[in-house]
Design a binder for these strands. Structure first.
Lengths: 203, 203, 203, 203
DNA sequence: CATGAATGAGAGTTCATTCAT
DNA sequence: GATGAATGAACTCTCATTCAT
C-alpha cells in the first residue's frame, strides 16, 4: 500500500503544480487568454501531460473556480473571530472588496464570467459559494436579532448588501467607472460603504 | 427618388438583420466566442457580406453598444416628466431594472462584457452612457438639495445607488442568485429597493 | 454610323479612364497591391463596371504592360534626332535609366515581374518590346559600322549593354544595393556608365 | 543518446522537407502567391504543422534566403585557390552565372524577389550576402592594385561587373531574352563576359 | 450602361486536443 | 508517466468575380 500511496501523492502533487500555474495565469491574463500550451510552457511539461491530469480545459477551469471559493471562504471565516456582529459584517465587506481588488481576474472568474461549465459542475460549484453566502447571511441575521439593525427581512438585507458590494467590484473590474478617476473611485467606494452601513445601522 | 429610398431602406434592413443576430449571439455566447462566421451562418449569408455593412467585428460591437445606450437613455429620460425628485429617482431605478430584465442582452453588452474597443469608440461610447449617468446624478442632487435626502455627497449617493442596482442586475443576469428561486429573487429585489430608498430618504 | 461611332468613342474613353487610373495605381503601389476595388474607387465607378471593359485583371495588366512599352519606345525614339550614333547610344542609356527611376513600378512591371500572362499575350507582348530592342540594336550596329566601336559582334555588344543597364536598374529597384547609401549608388551608376561606354569606345 | 540523435535528425529532415517544397513554390509562384496552405498541401501535412518548424511565413523565407547565400558563398570562396587575381575574377563570374542557372530558384529569391523581411532579418540577411560582395570587391581591388586593370575606382568596377552579371542572370531567369533562342543566349553570354573582361583588362 | 449586393475561395494564424511511441 | 508530433477546426479578414436589376 505504501507504493500506491506514494503514487497517489505524486499524482496529487503534479495536479497541484498544474493548478498552481494555471490559476496564476487565469488570474494574471484572464480565462480566454490562458491557453493549455501557455500553461504547459510555464510548468515546463508538454501540453499532452496536462491531459493526463485533467479531462479538458473546462475541468481545470472548474477546479480553479472551486478553489477560488475555498480561498475566499477561508478569508471570510477569519472574521468569525470578531464577536460583535455589526463589526464582523463590516469586516466581511472589507474582505470581499479586498479579494476583488487583489485578484480581479479571480473575482471575475468566480462572480462575473459566464462560465463554460457542464451540468455536474453546476451543482458542485455552489458548495463553497453557498457556504460563503450562508456565513454572511448568518451574520446579517445576528445583527438584526441582536438589534444592531432595524427589524427587517434577513434575506432582503443580505441580498442588498451582496448586490451593493458586487456592483462596486464588478463595475470597477469591467471598467465602467470611467466617469471618475481611479483615485475618485477609491474614495467613493469608501464613502459609499460607510454611508450604506451607516443608514442600515440601528442607532 | 422612390428607388433610392427603397434601396436605403433595404440596406438599413440588412444592417438591422445583422445587428439583431449579432446582438443575440454576443449575448448568448459572449464577444470572444461569437465569430463573424457564426453570425453569417445564422443569417444565412456569407461572412464576406457582413463586411459590406461593418468595417470589422469591433464596429459591430460598438454600434450595438451605442444602440443599447440610446434605447436606455430614451427610457430614462421619460422619467423627467415626474416633478418630485425622489419619486423620479425611484422611477429611474424601476426603469433601470426593467431595462436589465427586458433586454438582458443589451444590458450585458453595455455594463458587463469586456470588449476591445478602439480609441475612437472609447470617446463616442460615453456620449449616451455619460448622459444617462449625468441625468441620474442630477436627480440625486435635486433630492439632496431639496431636502429629500440627508445632506450627503452627491457622488457618493449616485455611486452607491448605481452600484447597488448594477449588482442586482448583473448577479441575476449572470446567474449568481441560484441560492434563491426566480420568484424569490423577484421579491427580494423589490424589497431591497424599497429598503434602500427608504433608509436613504430624509423623513 | 454616326451613332455607333460615338458609342465606340465613348466606350474607348471609358476604357482609357480606367487604364489611366489603373496604371497610376500599378505605378504607385505595384501590381499585387492594386485591387480591382481600389481602381473602381478611384474612378468612382463600381468594380462590376470594370468588367464591362476588361475580361479580368490579367487583361488590364497586359494592356498596361503594352502601353508601358509604347511610352518607353516613344521616349527612346526621340533620340533618333541625334545624328552621332555614339552620342545617341549614350542618350538611350540615359532614357533607359531615367525611365526606370522615374517609374520604378512601371519598370518593374515591364522588365522584372514574372507576369501572369496567358499564351496569346506572350506573342503580342513583344511587339513594342521587340521594336525597342531593335531600335537600340540598330544604333549599336551603326556605332560599330562607323568605327566608333571596335569591330565586335553587334549582338554581343547590345546584349552586354542591355544587361548592364538592367542590372543596375533592377538591383536598385529591388533594393539589393544596401551595401551603399542612396547617394553612393547614384554616383556609382554615373561612374559605371561613363566607364563602360569609355572602354567600349574606339578612340 | 542514440534516440535523441535520431529525433534531432528527423526534426531536421522535416524542416528540410518543408524548406525544399517552400523554396520550389516561392520560386515557381512567387512569394505572395505561395501560401502556407499550398506548401502544406504539397508536403501532405496540415498547415498547422508548418508552424511547428517555422514561426511564420517570413521566417521560412528568411531561412531559405540565407541558405541560398551560404551555398553561394561556399562556391565563391573556392575561387580563392586561384592566385592570379584577374583569373580569379573571371572564375568568380563563372561561378556567379553557374549558380544563377543551376539554382534559378535561389537566385531569384536572393537577388530578385521583393519580400517583406522584418528588422532582425535585415541585419542578419547581409551576413553572407555582404561577405560575398566583399570577397568579390577584394579581388577587384587586387586586380587594380597589381596593375591588371587600369587604375579606376574599385567600387565603380565592382558595381559595374555586379550589375552586368546580374542583368544577364535576371533577364534570363525572368524570360526577357525571348528575342534570342536559348542557344543564342548562351553564346551571347559567353561572348559578353569575354568582351567585358577584355575591355576592362589592362594590356 | 451601370451597379449594389453578394459570395467562394483563400490568406495567415492559433488552439484544444489526440495518439503512437 | 510523459511527450513530440501532428492536426482539424476555427479565427478575422480580403479579393476577384458574378449576376439580377
Amino acid at each position: 500500500m505504501g507504493i500506491s500511496e506514494r503514487k497517489g501523492r505524486e499524482k496529487q502533487e503534479m495536479r497541484d503544480l498544474i493548478l498552481r500555474e494555471a490559476t496564476r495565469m487565469f488570474i494574471e491574463e484572464g480565462y480566454e487568454k490562458t491557453s493549455i500550451r501557455s500553461i504547459a510552457d510555464r510548468i515546463e511539461y508538454s501540453p499532452a501531460t496536462i491531459y493526463l491530469y485533467f479531462k479538458d480545459k473546462d475541468e481545470m477551469f472548474f477546479v480553479i473556480h472551486e478553489q477560488g471559493f475555498e480561498k475566499f471562504l477561508a478569508k471570510l471565516e477569519k472574521t468569525s473571530a470578531i464577536g460583535h456582529p455589526y463589526e464582523r459584517l463590516f469586516s466581511m465587506g472589507h474582505v470581499y472588496l479586498t479579494f476583488a481588488f487583489d485578484h480581479p481576474e479571480y473575482y471575475d472568474l468566480m462572480f462575473i464570467i459566464r462560465a463554460p461549465m457542464n451540468k455536474i459542475a453546476k451543482d458542485e460549484e455552489w458548495h463553497c459559494g453557498r457556504k460563503s453566502f450562508d456565513f454572511f447571511r448568518d451574520t446579517v441575521r445576528e445583527c438584526i436579532e441582536k438589534g444592531y439593525m432595524k427589524p427587517t427581512s434577513v434575506d432582503v438585507v443580505a441580498f442588498s448588501i451582496l448586490s451593493f458590494m458586487h456592483g462596486m467590484a464588478s463595475l470597477a473590474i469591467r471598467e465602467r467607472f470611467k466617469m471618475y478617476t481611479e483615485e475618485e473611485v477609491k474614495q467613493l467606494m469608501e464613502g459609499s460603504i460607510k454611508m450604506m452601513l451607516g443608514v442600515l445601522e440601528n442607532k
